[in-house]
């Protein structure tokens, strides 16, 4: 088990009700972490209900859902970006 910082932005943050939380996990990849988070409570389940609308960054670099978590300290989940 390792401890990682999980960050949420935009509507994911609002649905979960927090911008960050510390999670103990043995998840090998992002998809497994999402499954663990979704099982925590209804808020997390609602936030991750549509994975097509969720993007992820590992240690502040964009990644995909199948990316491994080995050595990663910060995982961020957010909707597609709308800058500019």
């Amino acid at each position: 088990m390792t401890t990682i910082e999980v960050l949420y932005f935009a509507w994911l943050r609002e649905r979960i009700g927090a911008g960050r939380e510390r999670i103990e996990t043995a998840a090998p990849d992002v998809r497994a972490l999402v499954a663990q988070l979704s099982a925590m409570d209804d808020r997390h389940a609602a936030a991750f209900a549509d994975l097509a609308a969720v993007r992820v960054a590992l240690d502040q670099d964009l990644a995909d859902l199948d990316a491994p978590l080995a050595g990663v300290r910060e995982v961020a989940f957010f909707p597609p970006m709308t800058g500019g």
Binding site: A10, A57, A76, P80, M81, T82, G83, G84
Partner: peptide, 26 residues
Amino acid sequence: LMDYLKSRAPFWKKETRPDGTDWVAA
């Protein structure tokens, strides 16, 4: 620069309109 920063830089817009406040969809 504009094309990339619109979709690859982590910014999210939220707008307030007469019918409420909501996140802008990509």
